[in-house]
Design a binder for these strands. Structure first.
Lengths: 223, 223
DNA sequence: TGACTTTAGTCGCGAAAAGTGACTAATTCG
DNA sequence: CGAATTAGTCACTTTTCGCGACTAAAGTCA
């Protein structure tokens, strides 16, 4: 058994939990009792013998009761910026959570990305890194699919990509890229959503490619 | 002043210093006195008040007498894998050093990537992450140029890219991509390198682009 | 009912970029 | 000198991109 210093932890694990709330991205923040009036990212200090990832999953469990559907480490953040835990560095993670199944425990609240409360400089840097990482992984990991229900329309999928990228995409090009990447397959169900022609439902079903070619790339709209 | 625990440091800063040695990439390893017979990445524990980057630069200074020409954080590595410093986690960095000016201090040795001595699992993971990061940043940061002298031939530049990517590139496409990216400008000097037509010397001189468009992308050769 | 609106889904073309072999140019070697 | 060698460019084909315009199937409202 290894002792931890009593006053301050060597490092904390901070997690940016991201979800799609309606038309916006949102992240989970908490206001602990000891941290007078400032919101902060969920965090914990590691337990002995626990891997970094395991601690990050535990943070998510404590906040939402379930693990993220996708997670990635953002790196270590120090920079002499003050952190609520008073730890010297934070090892930060991003995690994605589908909004349907994500009901925050007491003390945790979803905040839309557009309207975040003041955070510590370090945590603000972490949130920005999280967004950059999500956008960078979007064409390599099935991030958008994981934020949607098992079946979805292509319009819903496109809207999710637009939300994550913060950009409008061109419909025809989006579908062409999707087909080239062999990521979805149609079901035989259709959904009528009020006005307009009913949309076919698709599911995420990546085909094995012999060559891992290049990632999915969409055409941007420059409005 | 904050006290550090005496027995183990909370974390160490490990640096993968990469250079181009002739036709191969090489990284710097050290065999400290206390670390019986095993080579390891250069590392230090942080001093109070020092940023992570500053510590990483200090590691490079101690090993080579000069700071890396480019550096990036790789993240935190824990995974319960044993580290020579006995620290719980390592915050790892990659740094690039041009080989001409990089003479290792006593106890440090360049090892070609193809022929590394046994490393701890954690450090092996760090080295692999370093290579992935270099390849991923190659089209965003002027990595290849920084490993070359101030003026260079386009063949030398292409060889450097091939070395870093581990792939052959097609000459005509390479030059086309280079021109599209406005990264180099010709000098009026030529260099005769034994047999064959003399090559014109170029220098790194990135033009400001109004739109940061996309990164440089080269055409691969599939042999 | 029938014109109009709204959303889904597709087509196809012009432009741009990528992939590649073959060509010309300037040097050294024998 | 001619062959070999390396640098640099050209030209052609294929693929991908950007995007407007089209058809399809529903609801809305006079």
């Amino acid at each position: 058994m290894r002792e931890r210093p009593l006053r301050t932890s060597p490092y904390s694990i901070d997690v940016v939990l991201v979800t799609a709330m309606g038309n916006e991205l949102a992240i989970l923040l908490t206001r602990g009792s000891a941290e007078r009036e400032r919101w902060s990212l969920p965090w914990r200090t590691p337990q002995t013998g626990e891997t970094l990832e395991a601690t990050a999953v535990r943070v998510a469990q404590d906040a939402l009761g379930e693990p993220p559907i996708w997670m990635e480490q953002l790196g270590a953040f120090g920079d002499a910026k003050r952190h609520p835990s008073d730890s010297e560095i934070s090892v930060a993670f991003v995690g994605l959570v589908p909004h349907e199944t994500a009901s925050p425990h007491a003390g945790y609240t979803w905040f839309p990305m557009r309207d975040l409360p003041p955070l510590s400089p370090r945590q603000r840097a972490i949130v920005e890194a999280a967004m950059r990482t999500i956008q960078g992984r979007l064409d390599q990991a099935p991030i958008a699919f994981r934020l949607l229900p098992l079946t979805f329309t292509l319009s819903e999928l496109q809207q999710m990509y637009e939300l994550l990228l913060g950009k409008r995409l061109h419909k025809a090009s989006f579908r062409r890229a999707l087909q080239a990447a062999w990521l979805v397959e149609p079901t035989d169900e259709w959904r009528s959503e009020g006005r307009g022609r009913p949309a076919q439902l698709f599911r995420y079903a990546p085909k094995k490619r012999r060559k891992p070619h290049r990632g999915v790339r969409f055409d941007f709209l420059y409005p």
